[in-house]
Design a protein around this nucleic acid. Structure first.
Lengths: 338, 338
DNA sequence: GTTTGGCACTCGCGTGTGGTGAGTGCCAGG
DNA sequence: CCTGGCACTCACCACACGCGAGTGCCAAAC
């Protein structure tokens, strides 16, 4: 197995490489870190680490850089989560407190994360599937045209147009609106289908078709793909990836624009706790030289969506993880308050 | 003044440079274009064009490239707007027809523009200021907590929470809702303030404070800054800017993330007709090596928002202008239908 | 007066060459 | 098992050199 000192050497290599972006050699290591051993010893350790696949050399007779596997060991065993400083925490709170609506919360969060980590930030809108219905509103726009407005406890509002199969009176509308709300208000989305199942039966025969249409639109909205909207920011930070980045930046930008990819990326994160995907661990190959740090956040104790950052594998993991975790917590608080 | 042939030389230079991204010399010009004169003559013309500031040489003894002033002359006098091919037009229509709601329309538009022009696309959401109120809805969420929902004729929905100074009964609520709608439904936003001015007076004294609160929230919503939301896409195309782009891409990405900058950018465009801002004509200095082609679009004959693309000054102006104009038209149609 | 061919000159770019130094692997001794 | 010594390996840098596309200018031709 790997001795204590070898792990320490790996930690030092990761630390220095993240800082300088240059392969780190045995001599430089002993100078910058007080390991208490000579360069020659470190060389032996490095050879062992390389043997096991934790580090590699870009070309013969150059320093070593960590491999994906090396980073993995680093975040799993060697690195903690670096808590933010008090001023940073205060800044987060102040900045997020200024938000006026959900769009604003998400927008501010994404900018905040990007600035804090100096990487690309991704924030998923609070998902509908986990949340509850606050209110359903039905408006008559024309005799045979309705608008359905769905308001969730996370502050999100979805609207849909409905073309009725038959004209629908104001009294029927008020009736439907009232019954609908009494049944579904405060309930979870997943429960809604059973709750409204028998609703059409209690209406006049001529209205049943319309009621059914309304209900099916409502159910559609609940599972609609655009429940998975998201916002990204800080793409300018991609330019810090490295000198060779023209080659790497393009597929990354492309991947970032494909929301589907990003959703899958975040989706893979386990519901609670932080997930770190390093390099090739990401399914999408455009992101094979990036790492993704993500975590769930939510208004209650429960996670309703995810947020995270995308950066080079050569990133400051403890700092990034600290920032991501802190932001997720504060966003959760903000959502709970509103 | 510039002779006909000299303009032709400028046109040829722009054409070749846009195609090859390399400085173009006199010999190459005469070979690729049938100008009917010798390289030496072209050299004289080039000297004249350079004298007037339309072209420049990156370094002594290299070919010429157009200056911002040269591009300006090119788009003003020499270039038409290249119409799209029939298949392209069909593709646009098919793609946009699939949209289900406003977010989707804007999202599809931005992707379409980015793909068509292979540049960065920017689409402003239909602005509230020009549009009319379709419906205002008031919902009671708690005894002293209301939700205001504003629906516009462009399909946009805005919602705001309102904390009432005093409890507000259901009957008063229904009353306010009805009166509000009868006054403002179908009216332009700019007209709303006068239309509701005297509304509080007609209510019971105890409700007047609440009514006033509701109205002020409504008016706020009408002028709210987030009426200026926008969406951008195709940032991956920035990598095509050139080999030297690490230097230029960063400020561009930064500028693109600052929505304020973009809004100003598009805002400068005249309401009708297409606007082309070339290089330093753009106020923001991060965009001094880019051009912006923008045009207004709208559901009726009237423009309610703008869309456009941002690309290198060295872009295919006729083609880009054609694509931008075509997309704007089809989006207008889609909005008019819904 | 405009156009043309000729000619000397400029200078960016790609290639090649040699020196430098950080880093390595191995080995023998502590 | 750690250490110091030593020969070896390359990536990188700087410099020099030749090539060639392109220019400006001028005198002759149209």
């Amino acid at each position: 197995m790997l001795s204590e000192r070898r792990l320490e050497v790996l930690r030092a290599i990761v630390h220095d490489y993240v800082g300088t972006q240059e392969p780190v050699g045995s001599k430089a290591l002993t100078e910058r870190h007080s390991l208490g051993v000579s360069p020659a010893t470190v060389r032996n350790d490095m050879a062992a680490l390389e043997e096991e696949g934790f580090i590699a050399q870009p070309h013969t007779s150059a320093g070593r850089i960590p491999t994906d596997k090396g980073y993995r060991l680093f975040v799993d065993k060697l690195a903690g989560v670096k808590p933010l400083s008090a001023p940073e925490r205060r800044a987060i709170q102040n900045f997020l407190d200024g938000a006026v609506d959900l769009d604003d919360v998400v927008g501010r969060t994404v900018r905040l994360l990007a600035q804090l980590t100096r990487q690309v930030a991704v924030v998923q809108y609070p998902s509908l599937t986990r949340s509850t219905v606050r209110h359903v509103e039905l408006l008559s726009l024309a005799p045979a045209r309705l608008m359905l407005v769905l308001i969730t406890d996370t502050g999100r509002v979805e609207q849909r147009m409905i073309d009725c199969p038959a004209p629908f009176g104001e009294t029927s509308l008020a009736d439907l609106r009232a019954r609908l709300n009494s049944r579904v208000a405060g309930r979870r989305f997943t429960d809604v289908p059973q709750l409204v199942q028998d609703l059409p039966e209690s209406f006049d025969k001529e209205d049943q078709a319309t009621v059914a249409t309304v209900l099916s639109t409502l159910l559609e909205t609940l599972v609609e793909e655009n429940e998975e909207r998201m916002m990204i920011g800080g793409t300018a930070n991609l330019t810090r990836f490295g000198h060779d980045f023209p080659l790497t930046i393009r597929p990354v930008l492309e991947a970032l624009e494909e929301q589907v990819v990003l959703l899958k990326l975040l989706g893979e994160a386990t519901d609670s706790g932080m997930t770190v995907k390093i390099g090739h661990e990401n399914a999408h190959e455009g992101l094979s030289s990036t790492s993704v740090v993500s975590v769930g956040y939510g208004s209650g104790g429960e996670a309703v969506a995810k947020l995270g950052v995308v950066g080079p594998t050569r990133m400051d993991y403890p700092g990034t993880m600290g920032a991501v975790r802190a932001v997720a917590r504060y966003v959760g608080q903000i959502l709970a308050e509103s």
